[in-house]
């Protein structure tokens, strides 16, 4: 009963916060609703027994990606009127996308209940005895090793690309020499003076 209660709680909150993400007026609120949706989706993952994926969802999306979103959105100078002006123009496209997604869900469920895809008997049976970190690791580092490393390389290339595109050498910037700052001693930085009364200090 607790499971059912938890499922409906998480599911309802995911749906509601998803709806609020696209309908709330303030972009910062949108990001926060999105975070709530991520968080409850992680709860759903825990319920289906994928605790590793749930934790990764929270660490990667809630902990890092959404913070960056929030960072950017909070510092934006947003013109709300201009943002809402585009609504009518894109409404048709958005509706079409939504309809397509709903159709895909129905087709997926149809194929599932027709028995077309028998996921339970695929190559990766879930053994309830081994924790799912081990189960994922066993597959990821044996069967899917090259795909996994390939994905890593793609991310690396993307990262280097982003750095190459945004990095620029600026001329005339006085950079810090950290080693020199660290090596600085009080004797080099200060002088003891004993000036005559009324004379002041020669700098």
């Amino acid at each position: 009963m607790i499971q059912a209660f938890a499922f409906y709680l998480f599911a309802i909150v995911v749906l509601l916060s998803g709806a609020m993400t696209i309908s709330s007026r303030n972009p910062v609120h949108s990001v926060l609703w999105l975070i709530l949706a991520f968080f409850n989706a992680a709860g759903l993952m825990v319920l289906v027994g994928a605790e590793f994926i749930a934790m990764l969802l929270v660490i990667v999306y809630v902990g890092a990606v959404a913070v960056l979103f929030l960072f950017v959105v909070m510092m934006l100078d947003i013109d709300f009127a201009e943002m809402r002006a585009g609504f009518v123009r894109y409404a048709a496209l958005g509706l079409a996308l939504a309809v397509a997604l709903v159709c895909e869900i129905f087709i997926g469920i149809g194929a599932w209940s027709a028995g077309g895809i028998d996921l339970a008997r695929r190559a990766a049976p879930v053994d309830p005895a081994i924790p799912n970190i081990q189960a994922i690791g066993n597959l990821l580092y044996t069967r899917y090793l090259f795909v996994f490393e390939g994905a890593g390389l793609v991310l690396l290339v993307a990262m280097i690309g982003a750095i190459v595109l945004t990095h620029r050498e600026r001329k005339g910037v006085r950079g810090q020499n950290i080693a020199r700052q660290v090596a600085r001693r009080p004797e080099e930085a200060t002088r003891n003076m004993r000036p005559e009364v009324g004379q002041g200090v020669q700098l």
Partner: peptide, 24 residues
């Protein structure tokens, strides 16, 4: 739980929201 340390990381990554929201 068998993902104890990941849970710790996940929860501590949530900690930033309390501060960022207070500031904003």
């Amino acid at each position: 739980i068998n993902v104890g340390l990941l849970y710790v990381l996940a929860a501590s990554s949530l900690g930033v929201y309390g501060i960022i929201l207070a500031g904003w």
